[in-house]
Design a protein around this nucleic acid. Sequence first.
DNA 1: TTGATTATGATTATTTTTGATCGAATTAAA
DNA 2: TTTAATTCGATCAAAAATAATCATAATCAA
Lengths: 250, 250
Amino acid sequence: MTFQKRANKILELLEEFGEVEIRQLAAEIDVSEVTVRRDLTTMAANGLLYRTHGGAMKVSELIKPVSFVNKAAVNLKAKDAICKRAAADIMDGDIIFIDCGSTAFRLCQFIKNKKIKVITNSLPVVNELQGSPVAINLIGGEVDITRQAVHGNIAQEHIARYHASKAFLGVDGITGEGLYAGSEHEVSNTLAMASQSDCVYMLCDASKIGKTSYLKFNDLSLVNILVTDYNGPEITEFESKGISVFPVTV
Amino acid sequence: MTFQKRANKILELLEEFGEVEIRQLAAEIDVSEVTVRRDLTTMAANGLLYRTHGGAMKVSELIKPVSFVNKAAVNLKAKDAICKRAAADIMDGDIIFIDCGSTAFRLCQFIKNKKIKVITNSLPVVNELQGSPVAINLIGGEVDITRQAVHGNIAQEHIARYHASKAFLGVDGITGEGLYAGSEHEVSNTLAMASQSDCVYMLCDASKIGKTSYLKFNDLSLVNILVTDYNGPEITEFESKGISVFPVTV
DNA sequence: TTGATTATGATTATTTTTGATCGAATTAAA
DNA sequence: TTTAATTCGATCAAAAATAATCATAATCAA
């Protein structure tokens, strides 16, 4: 059993359990604990895992507290894939709007190294981009603590003062009929950002496609690009209405 | 059970409840209270949570920069005494400005139960007032991450849209000659808030009295009320210039 | 094959982690 | 205010895990 084989096995187990113990690995791979310890040390040095006392953890298990807030969020992998694709279109020098909401929030992790300006009404976005070279403009207005965002008339006026090359927005639901939201507060900001942008990206995981909510606030003409992991009959309908669909796989 | 696992567990519980007790954690994780205490100390040192007597609190997500937390710790008792006195003047129904800065920030703890509206450019203030009945209006504009506050022209314009009964401001220094600041950004917000308020409260611990800084931005006429723990010859000078001085003892 | 290099396992010394205890500090109560 | 009850920090000891050392086994090149 070579080191490479053991390393693969360890990564497999790590993937399955998220964490492993030396004892467990030694028994599973049938080598001494000393060897396992050596393997883990090497692998940790290569960034393949996180070494703990008595074992190792998957790197991704070590989440920062901020990410914790959104851990409860559903469809995380889909959202991350969507945001990764969307972020690929963001170039240095861009000025972009980022909507509040859990999907758009995931965009932050992919733009931390970019030299761009972000205009947002989302407090978590501001927080997440701390320490990055990203310049932040925070929309002012009434603070909605439950949504961790700013909204209201002043906020809309504030947005109207700016212009961005791209807007990254989320909605509660999207069908061939149009866009749906769960609250009027969200709508006003979404519309304001869209109207001030050259190109509107809508970030929607599969659960949003074909879903309606209590408020239909606009037809599909608002959207230029739809980034989604969904792959069903509605897609062609969206495209026939002039939306470019960027598919991603989870 | 490794430290990493416990840390994750603690953060989860913190996320759920906002605050936790040592006893509760020890029982939940099944380790001794000493160990929990050690974990909390370590995590607090890393800025993952706030250590309290007997437990920990969720770290305010917007107060991550260590500099601010540290600065806030200087002259804490004096600042708290000053803010407690100032808060006594705040009545239900008031609309108030709260400046950014470590002194004015301490005001938050004394107004959490009041039914008022707070207009501020300070991110820590927004965070601190979460979950309270206080309505918050956040000044919009460019985010200065190091100061944890919003500045710029848009911010000034935003402030100009509002009017408050009282403004609670801080400065870097105050002498018989006037008011001093360490940065022009702070000045513009301070002046804007002062001009839109019926009554300007200046919150200054003793270290600020008689101190000058590189920028004298206004004379004393800006100030209506000075709340301070300082008790020296300058006080009569301030009073002779029309300022009401509210003394506090530490 | 031989000699050199590397990988592995056993042993021992060191470090880390944990829990217990006790005086000091903090908070709450009288 | 003074007093009582917690909680904290420091110190110590026991247990576990690690790193270091060494010897043995496997691998490889000439």
